[in-house]
Design a protein around this nucleic acid. Sequence first.
DNA 1: GCCGTTCTAGAATATTCGATT
DNA 2: TAATCGAATATTCTAGAACGG
Lengths: 154, 154, 154
Amino acid sequence: ATVAMTPNTAHCVPAFVSKLWTLVEAPSTNDLICWSQDGCSFLVQDEQRFSKEVLPLYFKHSNMTSFVRQLNMYGFHKVVHMDAGLPKADSQVNCVEFQHENFQRAQPHLLGLIRRKVKLISVIIMQYIIMLVQKQSTHTQLLTLRFSHAEMCV
Amino acid sequence: ATVAMTPNTAHCVPAFVSKLWTLVEAPSTNDLICWSQDGCSFLVQDEQRFSKEVLPLYFKHSNMTSFVRQLNMYGFHKVVHMDAGLPKADSQVNCVEFQHENFQRAQPHLLGLIRRKVKLISVIIMQYIIMLVQKQSTHTQLLTLRFSHAEMCV
Amino acid sequence: ATVAMTPNTAHCVPAFVSKLWTLVEAPSTNDLICWSQDGCSFLVQDEQRFSKEVLPLYFKHSNMTSFVRQLNMYGFHKVVHMDAGLPKADSQVNCVEFQHENFQRAQPHLLGLIRRKVKLISVIIMQYIIMLVQKQSTHTQLLTLRFSHAEMCV
DNA sequence: GCCGTTCTAGAATATTCGATT
DNA sequence: TAATCGAATATTCTAGAACGG
């Protein structure tokens, strides 16, 4: 099953999300990427084979890190397992799980709610402050300038 | 019994606490770590075997001191026994007991209340700044208000 | 060849850097990690095998991403190849290269100059604020006190 | 101009070591 | 002395930044 990728003004599904859905649904690659049992997350069974064999079929790269960067950019979160990082038994080797509240099996109508992240205003402000800081030669100058009593009292 | 460990949500159980609960509950290691009789604390019966055999199954180390550091970081306290410091009878050798008001047998719903100690004040300040930010409608307004106009124009 | 890891007052080599040097020098793993031809950088030939077979021998993990995070933390930079991102010929598959001006073949005396990155000035300022905060009893006091000229001039 | 890819950094927890009480 | 904590590095997950399409 695939999902429309064309921009439908209001509720279009981003290209990445659409590809991801197709990827998880595809029976041919279910041994490498598939839904979790309850359908609320998806699993990558063998990170190494997945990145080299499956990713280039959908994206312009074969790096797990780029795939994860996109997942985070769209608000997905890694599901942490109890045995994370421990020397693994063969049965449990290399299982990665990601989740997003609007990415669920049999719920394609939710996909349009998944949005790419943009910068927060707070981040923009902090960056502005840091830029100012870097232009100052001494700490005292900077600190005197920045936080004055009157400004901080709401 | 296991406890959900998903990060980044509001009321999730920290990974360490989740692992600890699993560890104490696990029947297979009840001879080394188990609940106390009243279920209000847990006991480590043989520190040496526990650290070498059980810890590496859940953590990236096999040191009792690292385990204790984490316990203290999450607000657990050692329960001091009356015979502490005395030459120990064989029956009492190597018994360590730790306690936390929200870590009790058959009360997993309390685990979410166990919090890692952090420098909370920094968070409070950041939230305060963010709150200030969110009260402003435009960037220019905000910047003018917070930090004097002259300073922000680089 | 190994490098002393003991803190020698002034110019001790950080544990990570020492391990990295040992790792690159070790003849037994030269097929997976070795010096570049000119000795000014090092190469990881097969990222997948390297991460699973070599990393756990030196670190508490087997993730390339954790290794790269440390490299960046110590000021190493990835050397970008011209064929990055292209469909790779078999001979060139999976070759990763990193470089640091003080990490060179036959120059172990430079290793002490490699330093872990520390927090940015903005963070230091925040911590200073926190220290001030902890001296105050109430929020109102704190906010007024915090950002006044006199307090911030160290 | 937004999205995708890559390299690097931020932020929180984890581990170690030594100081404090 | 024993229990707790501070601080530095280590590991993990997520985000910033630069660049190109």
